[in-house]
Structure formats: C-alpha cells, structure tokens
C-alpha cells in the first residue's frame, strides 16, 4: 500500500520534472553572445583571461570569482572530519595501542602499493599545481593523494599516519587561504583580491594568475589531509563481535 503511494508521488514529481525540462532544450545556446556580457557565463568567459590570466575558466570561478564559497566549502569538509571523529569517538583503555582492525595483507600487495604510492602522490601534486592551466585543481589532486594514502592504509596493518603532521598541514593550508584573502584587504583591495602580490604574469605560464595557483595548492594539501583523516578514522573502528 505504502509502496503504491510512493510510486504515485514519484510519478507526479517525474511529470513536473519532465515539464520543467521541456522548457530547457538540450544544447541550446543559453550563454548568449560572449561580447554582450548578457549572462554571467558570458561575463566569465570574456573577462577571465584578460583580468585574471588563468587559462581554465572553471578554476577562475571556483577560486576567485566564487572564492568565498570555496572557503566555506573547505570549512564544511573540516567540520565533517571533526564531526566524524566526535561521532565515532571511543574511549581508549589506558595503555591501549591504536591500531587499525585489518587483516595482514600479502607480500605482493605490500610491495605493489609501496611501489605505486610515490607515483600516485606525484600525479596528485601535478594535478593541483597545474590547476589553472589544465583540467584539475586542488579538490581533484587532494582526492588523488588521499587515494594513495588509502592504498597504504589498506596494505599495511600498522602504517603510522602522523596525526600531528596531518593537523599541522590542514591548519597551515587553511591559514594560507584565509591569510591571502585578508592580505587583499590590507593592500587596499577586496577579500581574495587576485593581483595582490605575485602579479598576473602571462596566460598559460606555470607561474601566472596571481594568487589563484597558491590558493589551489593550499586547497589541495588541505583536502588531502582531511580526506586521509576521514579514511583513517573510519578504518580504525573496532567491529562488533557477535
């Protein structure tokens, strides 16, 4: 009975969704003429290269035009990690060693993951350093690095993850992000002013785009530390024995 009611409701929702999609034809040009700046998309496409000298428009929007939003997003990730830690908090007995509850992996997995880990980390660092030139950026690079740490955490039962180091990296990256924003205010611009100190440079150079690459590198380190923290907390839960 309840099932049919739910299906009926979903049919209504689906009907109105289809009606709404009929108003937005697929692939129609909704940005308009770029030179008119009639839509916000056209404004970004026209002004990103001359004003910020960043080749990747999405990066410019995420880090600079909507930089405040990204600061909030990084804060949400930090709060999620903290909340996860406090929800799954478990009182440790005195002298009890912290250990991950996994079975020992075979030698092949261990050697293979140790061989792969530097390359995965290198790929992640490449992705977030070139965030303003090619697809990618801090979030993607940080997630790739966290995947590398996941490999190590699964392969080695007693892989020591420096919690102090993780916290330090996370805090320093967050302070860098907020500090760059405040630096823009100090030098007489707005919060997260783009050409605050390194200068804009030429488009498609590695060092270009003002503060955007610096912020994205900070975001990369912060996301990597936070996601690794999430995985470490989840992997060290003791399962119920029933």
């Amino acid at each position: 009975m309840k099932k049919y009611l739910a299906i009926f409701l979903l049919l209504i929702v689906g009907f109105y969704l289809i009606q709404a999609f009929n108003l937005v034809p697929f692939g129609a040009n909704r940005v308009g003429n770029i030179d008119d700046e009639s839509t916000v998309g056209a404004y970004y496409l026209k002004n990103t290269v001359p004003k910020t000298s960043v080749a990747n428009v999405v990066t410019a929007i995420v880090v600079n035009y909507r930089g405040f939003d990204t600061l909030g997003e990084v804060t949400v990730l930090f709060l999620a990690t903290t909340g996860l830690g406090s929800i799954l908090f478990r009182k440790r007995k005195h002298g009890e060693e912290e250990e991950r509850v996994l079975k020992e992996s075979s030698q092949l997995v261990k050697i293979g993951s140790r061989l792969l880990f530097p390359f995965i980390a290198l790929l992640g660092i490449y992705v977030f350093i070139h965030g303003h030139l090619t697809p990618g950026g801090g979030f993607q690079g940080g997630a790739i690095i966290a995947t590398g740490f996941l490999l190590m955490l699964v392969a080695y039962k007693n892989y020591k993850l420096g919690h102090g180091a993780l916290t330090w990296i996370e805090s320093l990256a967050g302070i860098t992000f907020a500090g760059i924003g405040i630096w823009g205010l100090i030098t007489g611009g707005t919060f997260l002013e783009n050409n605050a100190f390194p200068g804009l440079g030429n488009v498609n150079d590695l060092i270009s785009g003002g503060v955007i690459p610096i912020i994205y590198i900070a975001v990369g380190f912060k996301v990597a530390a936070e996601l690794t923290g999430v995985l470490d907390i989840l992997l060290s839960i003791k399962p119920n024995k029933n």
Binding site: N29, R30, V49, V57, V58
Partner: peptide
C-alpha cells in the same frame, strides 16, 4: 551544455 561548444579552457 551547448551544442558544438568546447570545454571552457583557453
């Protein structure tokens, strides 16, 4: 998405 458009990277 816009028909015939490329990714927004210059």
């Amino acid at each position: 998405y816009i028909k015939g458009g490329t990714a927004p990277i210059f």
